[in-house]
């Protein structure tokens, strides 16, 4: 030991240790973390809710605009229907958000590998097929200045020929998968009881369909295309089924461990205002009432379409985010008398 060596007493270390710990005691994993109790999932959150929403809306928009034969009447950009642009951009941005959220984004191509069992892989393939075929389908309509460089392709953007219709049908089928698979990602495993229900993908599907329909109506209003009563009936139908699936989900298996805690948070706990007031009342029932009003009073349709769109987008995102936030794993072992919320 050299003469310069300073032997510090435990007391001398104390201030340094306190400074390192920022005045707080370290988390004691033995005491703080490993308790037999319901655990909330924390690995998926806002970015996944955005991803779910964008995928659903992108797929729904493409299907509805074509099924209702509205895509060519809702404006164009570079010759391609605006509604198709919005659809492709929504799905592309949703996909990029998902890739950005991965732990290893540069390996994103591997999401295509496990198509046999993984809902994420199904979705990745559906995204790819939809964007490829949807893009190819509208390509003949692409206008750059005064030229249409892909006009000679053997199909047309409106899908009037056999080949065009085939591409359109496959693209629409892929769009359906794009709308549904996010719910399937949550609903397939049994680990989180609130998610393990067919009602979750159904909620996501009909929420996406309602948002897409409201967007179609808003774009129609913006392009001076009259909003037909039939379109409003479709929106009313989507909202009614959405409401039924939400209520059905809230009323089934209410005492199952894990789901009990999820329902408690949604209906009585910290998310009550956002879920009951926001998602159910403002985001589903009010738009339903507004759609009925628009149906009855012709002159209100354009304005109400915008209001409904805003409400549905916010509530649709909220529905997905809250579904993620109340994903609760029940205790791995049931102990009678414990964990009543």
């Amino acid at each position: 030991m050299s003469a310069d060596t300073v032997i510090r007493t435990p007391e001398a270390y104390a201030p340094e240790a306190r400074a390192r710990h920022n005045g707080h005691r370290p988390e004691n994993v033995f005491m703080d973390r490993w308790r037999l109790e319901p655990k909330t999932q924390r690995v998926w959150g806002v970015s996944h809710a955005i991803w779910f929403t964008l995928m659903g809306v992108g797929g729904g928009l493409f299907i509805l605009a074509r099924a209702l034969d509205l895509s060519s009447r809702l404006g164009h950009w570079f010759g391609i229907p605006l509604v198709d642009w919005v659809s492709f951009v929504a799905i592309s941005v949703g996909g990029l958000i998902l890739i950005g959220d991965l732990g290893r984004p540069l390996r994103a191509w591997r999401a295509f590998v496990n198509i046999r069992t993984s809902a994420i892989s199904w979705g990745a393939w559906a995204d790819l097929v939809f964007l490829t075929l949807g893009g190819l389908l509208v390509l003949p309509a692409l206008r750059l200045g005064s030229s249409q460089p892909f006009e000679s392709l053997p199909w047309e953007a409106e899908a009037t020929s056999g080949l065009g219709q085939t591409i359109e049908i496959v693209a629409m089928a892929a769009a359906v998968v794009v709308m549904v698979y996010a719910g399937g990602v949550l609903a397939r495993p049994r680990a989180i009881p609130y998610w393990h229900s067919v009602n979750v993908p159904l909620q996501f599907l009909f929420s996406s369909a309602a948002i897409s329909m409201a967007l179609v109506l808003t774009m129609a209003a913006a392009n001076d295309v009259p909003i037909e009563s039939g379109d409003l009936w479709i929106l009313i139908g989507f909202l009614a089924v959405l409401l039924v699936t939400i209520v059905a989900h809230l009323l089934t298996r209410t005492e199952a461990p894990g789901k009990r805690e999820s329902l408690d948070r949604l209906l009585r706990g910290r998310y009550r205002g956002a879920f009951v007031g926001g998602v159910i009342v403002l985001g589903t029932i009010i738009p339903l009432v507004l759609a009925v009003v628009a149906l009855a009073v012709d002159g209100t349709r354009d304005a109400l379409a915008i209001v409904m769109l805003v409400l549905l987008v916010v509530a649709g995102f909220g529905l997905r985010l809250l579904t993620l936030r109340v994903g609760i794993f029940p205790p791995v072992k049931e102990v009678p008398g414990l964990f009543k919320p």
């Binding site: 390996r107 591997r110 069992t117 993984s118 892989s121 495993p189 049994r190």
Partner: peptide
């Protein structure tokens, strides 16, 4: 279920 859910194998 982890194997089933994993997209990358």
């Amino acid at each position: 279920p982890c194997i089933t859910a994993c997209p990358s194998g």
